[in-house]
Nucleic acid binder design. Structure first.
Lengths: 339, 339
DNA sequence: CTGAAAGCGCTTACAG
DNA sequence: CTGAAAGCGCTTACAG
């Protein structure tokens, strides 16, 4: 084990007691500005990093954040996880990851078990768990600070991080319109998730804004899986008056549309433009590669950790701010030529 | 923070000093069998779980395991990660996850940086990092115990966990043969990975064993991505004398074969049977679902953690055992009807 | 084979 | 605004 700089050494260099260093560390306000400066310089110079184990042992806090997720099938979870893992390490926290399997126990029961065995003192909830009302109530009752990711309801209940799915869908639709498309089909996502509604709303908004129609037949229900995308694509493309572009609510379904187009002998993007959503691996695994939306998943993870690590007092408040992070439109071959 | 059982309480209940409890905890042999029994009963009865923070602070050990990975594109990594995360928590260890991006620094430099900032005292290496000779040398030099996952060379250098890819490929090929197929095509994986060679060897072995031929045209080079699978499938299916079954070295390529078959108007599995490898999400996302091999990824993760957590002394030895875990053949619609 | 003492690096009251 | 003391729950020498 690498012998590292201790609070003692920082104190000596700054000519203060370790108590004062500790105060600076924990952002206590009861430190003279000049002293704070001196201490911070000493920490910098020495490259001091607080010992998490000692901290945890001495304090009533555990410096452990629980990350609860529900749906393991998404690359979403693993991306978020990686981001949160890395950032929490930087912040001197440990992440305790728990998969709430829906089949065995309720999410609340699993939370209780988790609290029992590893003393986490704050929680991050991924969708769709972030909308589990029973879970939210249990968290409040135990007075556990928590942050939700992309929640669909009760925005004021806790701090949350998200992106503007509706705006993103609007932008993507607008992109297709700018490419000259007027007949744009849409494949909805699984109705059990809030983002499905938001993405659909963004599509409708853009179409309406440009005076384009959205006949019933051009809007198909999907469920985010490849299979549902195939069926929706089939329904879309077999029509007499078929769309010249299709907006699928995620990449899996968009990939299915591309496959179905190939099967029908349609060239993508010349005869059919396709756009997806999420920028998963699949988006660049197929050909042509998918125009899509990249979610700021890593940044959402970091922000969630920051909220919990930096502002424990904020969590006691009643009205919580939403942290809306920027997405990115990724243009690729499925909707543009020569790009 | 939940106030938990301490070593003190266990000691009282067992009528010994905390020192003795500590000895039992750490598997020291210098404890009378009867005493050990008593202590263990007390731990059981009280539901005692050692405080990791205290342990880490008091000892020279960090109880932190570094998990180094290279290729983030695989669902493999996230599955492994989840398994390792869960199991290491159970064992009272923390996992420090580090993504060694190939583009910026060498893996060795990143390892050094990691050792500097967070005092891990053992390491798990995922493929293909587990075959980075410079990294292995650095690890040995720093005397850091490590476990490799599915290494392709230097088996005796460290303990490792893996599955028998060749045997799995053999079994899968045999399954196709049993279904009556004689003309079986094969799509190789990326040659930068050892498993590609092993899977190909298993296919060849099974074919030879049943007296079947493997003409050059029926074996195509792929690179594990969907795109390469499409091209290989095209090459395979456009032949005059085309195979009646295709073994793709992973699910992504197998999915591409299915798509290509549909495009050619071939029914799967009636006119073309397809099998993949890995049982990723994609395997059940498409239709028909893929017959494939399920790797024991979670178990490999657990075993790797166990090796590091339980037997630190073993790691000093010179000859290291391989831990070969069992795979599973998953039969689905892409190769069987009515199943 | 078992135990009493010291100490790991911090934080929490409590003084001043 | 700053500091001296005690203690968090363990392990590491050191005795016996």
């Amino acid at each position: 084990m690498h012998k590292s700089i201790t609070i003692q050494q920082v104190a000596e260099r700054a000519n203060v007691s370790i108590m004062t260093v500790s105060r600076v560390l924990n952002g206590s306000s009861k430190v003279a500005e000049s002293t704070r400066q001196r201490v911070q310089e000493a920490m910098q110079a020495l490259g001091y990093r607080p010992n998490v184990a000692a901290r945890r042992l001495a304090s009533a806090r555990s410096y452990m954040i629980g990350l609860l997720y529900d749906n393991p099938s998404e690359g979403y979870v693993s991306q978020f996880l990686l981001g949160a893992l890395e950032h929490s390490r930087r912040k001197g926290y440990h992440l305790v990851v728990e998969h709430c399997r829906g089949d065995e126990l309720t999410a609340v029961e699993q939370l209780m078990a988790l609290l029992n065995e590893s003393q986490i003192d704050s929680v991050i909830l991924l969708p769709p768990l972030c909308d589990d009302l029973a879970l939210l109530a249990a968290l409040r009752q135990r007075q556990l600070p928590f942050v939700r990711v992309a929640p669909d309801r009760e925005p004021g209940l806790s701090p949350y991080v998200c992106m503007d799915d509706q705006r993103a869908a609007y932008r993507l639709t607008q992109h297709l319109i700018e490419k000259g498309h007027q007949k744009i089909g849409f494949i909805k996502g699984n109705p059990n998730q809030g983002v499905s509604r938001q993405r659909y709303a963004g599509y409708l908004e853009a179409m309406a804004h440009h005076g384009l129609t959205t006949p019933e037949d051009w809007v198909q229900q999907g469920y985010f899986c490849y299979r549902s995308g195939m069926e929706a694509a089939h329904a879309l493309l077999s029509q007499q008056d078929r769309p010249s572009a299709v907006f699928a609510s995620n990449d899996d379904m968009a990939a299915a549309v591309v496959a179905e187009a190939h099967r029908c002998g349609l060239k993508v993007p010349e005869q059919l433009a396709v756009v997806g959503f999420d920028d998963t691996q699949l988006a660049t695994a197929i050909w042509p590669q998918l125009t899509t939306i990249r979610q700021p998943i890593r940044q959402m993870a970091q922000r969630a950790v920051d909220i919990l690590a930096d502002q424990p007092e904020l969590l006691a408040e009643d009205d919580h701010p939403g942290h809306v992070l920027a997405f990115e439109v990724i243009l690729r071959g499925s909707s543009t030529t020569g790009a």
